[in-house]
């Protein structure tokens, strides 16, 4: 039974690895940290695998583990010591929109972790407000405010004219 369960776990993680790494990359902004985060998440997933298998939305369950691991890490002493902005860019040299991608990455770096996680869940994972609230363990109102603040922060970097004095 245990071998079968392990095989199912391996098959699931292999099939979702690319997706998990991309979500983690958006959260961490560098692939090295992203892989560390995914390693933590899939280890926790294995610990809870007997129960996780019975969850209706397993992808959502894993995504929640990943996001909460990210936020927990940011709260830890280790997370606070790490200066992600000091990491070298890890982008495809052949990317046609390299500058634009770099700008987005820089903008995301200055968005606080919880706001960043909210933006990733809402606009990359396409969760609605309630789903994002469930994943983050907060209220829908908090998700809305974090979304607004996160987008405003990104605007300040990506839309220089969007300063406080801008008239709409």
């Amino acid at each position: 039974m245990s071998e079968r369960r392990d095989a199912e776990y391996v098959e699931y993680v292999e099939s979702r690895l690319t997706w998990l790494r991309r979500v983690a990359y958006l959260l961490c902004q560098d692939w090295h940290s992203a892989d560390d985060l995914v390693q933590v998440a899939v280890t926790r997933l294995f610990t809870h695998w007997p129960r996780a298998q019975r969850v209706e939305n397993l992808d959502g369950y894993v995504r929640t583990i990943l996001v909460r691991a990210f936020l927990g890490e940011r709260r830890s002493a280790w997370g606070r010591r790490v200066v992600l902005a000091g990491s070298p860019p890890e982008l495809a040299a052949a990317s046609a929109d390299r500058d634009a991608v770099l700008d987005v990455r820089d903008a995301l770096l200055i968005v606080p972790p919880r706001q960043r996680a909210t933006l990733v869940l809402r606009f990359y994972c396409d969760l609605d407000v309630d789903q994002a609230a469930a994943a983050l363990g907060c209220s829908a109102g908090t998700v809305k405010s974090q979304t607004a603040k996160g987008l405003a922060t990104m605007r300040r970097v990506l839309e220089p004219s969007a300063g406080p004095g801008r008239e709409w």
Binding site: V10, R22, Y25, L26, V42, S95, D97, V104
Partner: peptide
């Protein structure tokens, strides 16, 4: 976000 996530990734270091 999609453009950023689609940037080329290095080989995974995740060890299942």
């Amino acid at each position: 976000f999609r453009n950023l996530a689609d940037t080329e990734a290095p080989p995974a270091r995740v060890d299942i």
